[in-house]
């Protein structure tokens, strides 16, 4: 069983852990199926509130965007696996995380402009 928390902004992973207005929690069984899920609206956006929630809910994995090192180290110290700097939709990130294929810094967002026209630097 893994219990995943994703700080949310709309349907996407919130760009910042400390400013996320919502959090999504999913319980994944050993068959890699989501057996329970819910979204919580946070009364105030704060990294401390989220950390407390993560420990109270006994979360085992956090998928988030930018997070300060202080909170990252704190969660790691509390044996929570943190995949940070992930950009894109929460559902896609969870899908990859369940397969063990999500890494820090992953960009899962569809680019609104074709990437091949990117300027060369």
């Amino acid at each position: 069983m893994i219990k995943i928390l994703v700080p949310l902004l709309g349907d996407d992973i919130a760009p910042r852990f400390d400013l996320a207005p919502e959090a999504y929690i999913a319980l994944v069984d050993d068959n890699q199926k989501i057996v329970e899920e819910r979204t919580i609206v946070l009364s105030e956006a704060s990294a401390e509130t989220l950390c407390r929630m993560i420990l109270d809910e006994r979360i085992t994995m956090v998928i988030c965007g930018g997070i300060e090192d202080e909170y990252y180290q704190y969660l790691v110290w509390k044996k929570v696996s943190v995949v940070d700097s992930v950009i894109g939709s929460s559902s896609k990130a969870i899908e990859l995380a369940i397969k063990g294929a999500l890494s820090p810094g992953s960009i899962l967002m569809e680019r609104s402009i074709p990437q091949k026209s990117a300027p060369s630097t």
Partner: peptide, 23 residues
């Protein structure tokens, strides 16, 4: 920011720059 130009290309700025004023 720690992300390269090519990685950032086409991504909405708030997701890449992670500024507090985006919120």
């Amino acid at each position: 920011i720690g992300f390269g130009c090519e990685e950032s290309y086409g991504i909405p700025c708030s997701y890449m720059l992670k500024c507090n004023h985006c919120f």
